[in-house]
């Protein structure tokens, strides 16, 4: 068993699905990443990916209805830093999201569609699953070289 769970710091938080809580999630992930010795630049990338995942959950899985839970859990070992984000909202098909065409977005005054692309660009692995038919689980993984 090589998962390291800090004894003095929680490795999970649960927040309500409102954008006001994005700052809370960012603070939690920032502190955990820095505590585990990840450099500031990589920490910033992980935190932004987590922000994008949570924003997608609030907007799409929960359709901007607050008071629903978002669980953010951190697992780490000597090889990787992993953030697992769980929601109980609408199922999400990651394959339905195309890579954004920025020029096309500009012409059509579109402002969405960037989050998924950013997430995939910022961390090494992004994995989406529908678990037990009732929850969406996103795993964002940064491997240590």
């Amino acid at each position: 068993m090589d998962i390291v769970k800090s004894k003095s710091f929680p490795n999970e938080i649960i927040v309500e699905s409102t954008t006001a809580n994005l700052v809370v999630v960012r603070k939690f992930v920032t502190e955990a990443a820095l505590r585990s010795g990840i450099d500031e630049d990589t920490t910033n990338r992980i935190v932004l990916a987590v922000d994008e995942a949570c924003t997608n959950i609030i907007r799409h899985a929960y359709k901007n209805i607050s008071s629903n839970p978002i669980e953010v859990c951190i697992n780490q070992n000597k090889n990787k830093f992993e953030v697992v984000i769980t929601d109980y909202g609408k199922p999400f098909d990651p394959n339905s999201v195309k890579k954004p065409d920025i020029k096309d977005n500009l012409k059509n005054y579109k402002k969405g569609g960037l989050g998924m692309f950013l997430m995939r660009s910022l961390v090494d692995e992004v994995d989406f699953r529908r678990d037990e038919g009732q929850k969406n689980v996103v795993r964002l993984i940064k491997y240590f070289n």
Binding site: D51, E52, T55, I102, Y109, K110, L114
Partner: peptide, 16 residues
């Protein structure tokens, strides 16, 4: 700090 929600605002108005 900026996330895609902020970038989206730039995108929404530049053509106009």
């Amino acid at each position: 700090y900026i996330s895609s929600a902020g970038l989206g605002v730039f995108m929404a108005y530049i053509e106009e």
